[in-house]
Amino acid sequence: MYTIRIIPCLDVKEGKVVKGIHFKNLRYAGDPVELAKWYSDEGADEIVFLDITATIEKRQILLDVVKRTAQNVFVPLTVGGGVKSLDDIRDLLNSGADKVAINTAAVKNPDFVKQAAKMFGSQCIVVAIDAKLVHGSQFTVHSSRFTVHSSRSKVESKKWEVYINAGSTPTGLDAVFWARKVEKLGAGEILLTSIDADGTNQGYDVELTKAVVDAVNIPVIASGGAGKIEHFIEVVKKAKVSAVLAASVFHYKKYSIKKVKTAMNSAGIQVRV
């Protein structure tokens, strides 16, 4: 038995839920405290709360907003944004987070993921990966132990590059390689967002998602691009993800969580109803 989780995502800026396209052009989508309660009552299997400007503004996440959001939530709450120390994680857990998402700090200091998993348990540590398709053949993927010149391979396979600082800074890291690495470091789960698909409502990046799911044995949450009910079904069936995350379709009430779940159920996907 394995049920797929449906996860509404609250991208929070200055205490308000916003939604953009390709991580830009943010517009107001609601109050995090109210939305979280609404989703928790409506049947969301989990809620993700991301303080999307914490890293760029070089500040800590807004603990007070997290605390007020958590107050009305009796389903799992994953919180991320600017998390870079064990103290940050402890503060978030004490504010009501059940899991913590690490993104930029994991790339800058991979050992942090290891320490965090050791201290709080892997089940508590989600590594968020923001990835973008690499165009052209000159791309070189770097890591400390591994270099691939994709231009040399006979069959041109797609590559995705990891971006940090809320999608603004390319890292040269290959997303699939990075996913494998964070699993080894002790991450319990991967929250994978396609920057290309984000906010487009044109569907998840199935190829990217499948490439990452096939590379690791920890659960992967697909994120970015959900616009229609078929998109949820497609990414679960084709990429075998453990969970699907969406923001705008839920915030703007295009679909209710219940409606998505009913449709997935009819398509033969096991969900909690």
Partner: peptide
């Protein structure tokens, strides 16, 4: 073939 940790709602 099943991911570990077991993270989901289950019966």
């Amino acid at each position: 073939g099943l991911p570990v940790p077991h993270i989901c709602w289950n019966i």
